[in-house]
Design a protein around this nucleic acid. Structure first.
Lengths: 249, 249
DNA sequence: AAGTGGTCTAGACCACCTC
DNA sequence: AGGTGGTCTAGACCACTTG
C-alpha cells in the first residue's frame, strides 16, 4: 500500500457526498505525486477499509476519476494512474477560461477594437440587419506571455457593454450583461501560416496553423459571436468529446 | 405508468450485465417512441419492481443513458426523455459514416491488418494486459476515390470478428459483434505532412495535415479503439458542437 | 490460491418537489 | 404527505489476472 491513511480526510457531516470527497482526495494525491503515473492505487477493498466507507461508494469515486481520464482500470489486476492526463475541455469557454483550465496565464495584445457595420456574411451569421452595429475585436492571444493565437471576433453591439468597458475577456464581458452563450458550433481546419500570421505569432511562414471558426448562441437561439481564430499548430491542441448520435437525428 | 412490462425483456443468464440490457431496452423504447420527448420515465422504484432488478442496478442503466444525453434527471421530480438536441457532425461515427453524411463515397486501401501485441501506450489506452491480442489496422482512406486520410487503428482482438471478416468499415464490424462505441475523446492538432504521408496522400511534403487521435469507449466504459489519423488539411474540416457544461455525473 | 475489478441485492435515510 | 431522485451500507458471487 502506497498511500497513508492520514492523507484522506473525509467528513461525514459535510453536505458534500462522500464519493466526491474521496474523489477530490484521490485527485489531489495523484496531482501531488503521492501515486505516480502508471502505478496502481490501493485496491477498492483497501480504500474501503482505509476510509471506512463502503466499496460501492469507493467505486463511485473512482468512476468519476475514470471519466476524467485520470485513472484506468484493469479487471483482475488493479486501478492505475493514467499515463496521459488530458483535459477534455469541450465545454463552451472563451480563450481566457480555456487557458486557465490548461494552467496557463491568458493575455491579449489588441490589434483592433471598434464599432462597425457588419459585412454580408457577418450579418447573416449574426442574424442582424446590414445597418446594425457590431463590435469588431482583433487580438493576439497569449499564454504565459507567448503568442498563441490570433482571434478576430464580431459581436452585435447590443449584447456588449460600451466598448471601453469590455476588458480582456470577451466571455466575461458578455456574462456581465447576462448574455452568456450556451451553445456553439466550431469548425476546425488545418492550414499554413501566412506571412502576416507568421509575424504576429512569431513563427515561420508556412508553419502549421489550426484555424477555428466559432458561432455561438444564447439560450433563446440568438447568435452571439462569429469568431475566427488562428492557433499555433505546435502549441495548441483541441480536445473534444463525442457521443453516439442521440436518436432520430 | 406509460410502459408495459412486457416490453422489457431481461435475461439473467446472459453474459451481458443486467444494467446494459435494461439500458438497451430503454434506449429502444425511447427511439421507438414508447416514451415521448419531455415525458417522464417510470420512477426508479417502479422500474425496479417491473423488472425485478434492484434499484441500484436500475440507476446504473439510467446513468449510462444520462451520459449519452438521452435522459435528464430532475431531483424530487423524475427522469425525463431529453429534449431533442440538434446534432451536428460531432457525433461518434467512423470514417465510412462520416463520409456518407458528407455525401462522399468512402473507400480504403489497406496498408496493414494483423493481430499483434500492444505496446505500452496502447495497452494503457485500451486497458488490456501487455500480453493481450490487439488488431492493428492501417489504411489510406479515400473519398470518391481520392486519398483523404491515413488511419491507424488499434482495437482489442476480443471486440472484433476474425480478421478476415472485418471488411472495410471498422465501426460496422464492431457493431456486428455488439461492441458499439458510445463515447469518444478526440484530440486534434494541426501539423505538416511528412514525406511518407505526402506520398500516400498525394500532396506536397510540408502541406497542412489535421491529426486526430481518437479513443472511444463502450457503454460500460471499456476502451474500444485507439486511432490516429492524418487528414489532408485542404480537403477536410472538423465540425463540433460545444455546450455549456451540463451533466455532472 | 489469492487478489482484483465487475456486478448485484435488499434494505436505509435524506432533501427536495409536487407525479 | 407521499413520491422522487441522491446517497450509502454490508454483504455476496463471478471472471479474471497474477500483485
Amino acid at each position: 500500500m502506497t498511500l497513508e491513511q492520514g492523507r484522506i480526510a473525509l467528513d461525514g457531516a459535510s453536505p458534500t457526498p462522500l464519493y466526491l470527497q474521496l474523489a477530490e482526495s484521490l485527485r489531489g494525491m495523484i496531482r501531488g505525486g503521492a501515486v505516480r503515473v502508471g502505478e496502481a492505487l490501493p485496491s477498492e477493498r483497501e480504500l474501503s477499509a482505509m476510509t471506512s466507507i463502503s466499496r460501492v461508494t469507493v467505486r463511485k469515486a473512482i468512476d468519476a476519476l475514470l471519466r476524467e481520464g485520470l485513472l484506468s482500470r484493469r479487471p483482475g489486476s488493479g486501478t492505475y494512474v493514467a499515463i496521459r492526463i488530458e483535459q477534455p475541455a469541450s465545454v463552451l469557454a472563451g480563450f481566457s477560461a480555456d487557458m486557465q483550465s490548461r494552467g496557463a496565464r491568458p493575455g491579449s495584445v489588441w490589434l483592433e477594437q471598434r464599432v462597425d457595420a457588419p459585412n454580408a456574411e457577418e450579418a447573416a451569421a449574426l442574424n442582424c440587419a446590414p445597418g446594425a452595429a457590431v463590435v469588431r475585436m482583433s487580438r493576439v492571444r497569449t499564454a504565459d506571455g507567448e503568442p498563441l493565437a490570433i482571434e478576430r471576433a464580431v459581436v452585435p453591439a447590443t449584447l456588449l457593454p460600451p466598448v471601453g468597458d469590455i476588458g480582456d475577456s470577451l466571455y466575461e464581458a458578455l456574462n456581465r450583461r447576462g448574455n452568456r452563450p450556451v451553445r456553439g458550433v466550431q469548425r476546425l481546419q488545418s492550414s499554413l501560416a501566412t506571412p502576416q500570421e507568421a509575424q504576429l505569432l512569431d513563427i515561420p511562414v508556412g508553419a502549421a496553423i489550426l484555424r477555428i471558426e466559432r458561432r455561438s448562441f444564447l439560450a433563446n437561439g440568438a447568435p452571439v459571436e462569429l469568431t475566427r481564430s488562428a492557433y499555433r499548430g505546435d502549441r495548441y491542441d483541441f480536445v473534444t468529446e463525442v457521443r453516439e448520435a442521440a436518436y432520430g437525428g
